[in-house]
Simulated scan of single mutants.
Amino acid sequence: MGHREDLLEGAKKCLVEKGFVRTTARDIVSASGTNLASIGYHYGSKDALLAQAYIALMEEWGDVFQAGVSGEGGSLERFRQFWEGVVAQHDESGPAWAASLEVALSGDRLPALRALLAASQAEGRRGLVSTPTGTPEDQIDEREVRTLGAFYQALLNGLMIQWVFDPESAATAEELTEGMRRAAEAMVRPKGAEG
């Protein structure tokens, strides 16, 4: 590996261990075996490197649980499998979730980092549509990214917050699936019908 890849791996390690705010450029250099000048040369800034590391962690995490999703696109079974994968990966992805909350709650203290992560949201939403629906990413249009992707992102962020606050009471894949089924039934039930 070259310095660019070494820096990315070191930054991922630091994100998991220390989060965004507590990770210094020297931490990354120490974890990667590179030098301080390499950060600026390859990524422009520590924050840009950390944003890329965060995106890489999320992609790796998504690749792992996507492998367990099969079945017809859009089915409740596929929805359940998707959330089973998310929940099963909590121990590995929990530190990255905590880091993303750290950035979200940082207000104006990390504007460059927030801007970099916000710019990656559309791609993340595209992946969130693809897995539970079975739609290839290149067939997902911008409207689906802005609607269905935002919906799945809201579910994921809500689950993430539940796990950060109290993993014991966080929703399971079965509970999320049952909640989705009930919500869908309530939306299509004729007005005044008993359920």
Rank of each mutant, 00 (worst) to 15 (best):
L7W: 03
L7H: 04
V16Y: 07
G19D: 06
G19Y: 10
F20D: 02
V21T: 10
T24P: 04
T24K: 13
I28P: 00
A37V: 09
G40F: 11
Y41V: 06
L49I: 05
Q52T: 03
Y54A: 12
Y54V: 02
L57I: 09
W61G: 04
G71L: 12
E72H: 11
E72D: 10
S75L: 14
L76Q: 08
R78P: 01
R78M: 09
F82W: 15
W83G: 00
V86N: 06
V87G: 01
S93Y: 14
A96H: 08
S100K: 12
D108F: 13
D108G: 10
L110Q: 09
L113K: 05
L116H: 14
A118H: 09
A119S: 12
S120C: 10
G127D: 14
V129T: 01
V129L: 12
T135H: 10
E137S: 02
E137N: 01
Q139N: 11
I140K: 10
R143T: 05
E144F: 07
T147P: 01
L148R: 05
L148S: 00
G149R: 08
A150C: 02
A154N: 06
N157I: 11
L159K: 03
L159W: 15
M160G: 12
M160Q: 10
M160E: 05
W163G: 00
V164P: 00
V164Y: 06
A171T: 08
T172G: 00
L176P: 00
R182W: 06
A183H: 11
E185R: 14
E185N: 03
P190D: 10
P190Y: 08
K191F: 11
K191W: 07
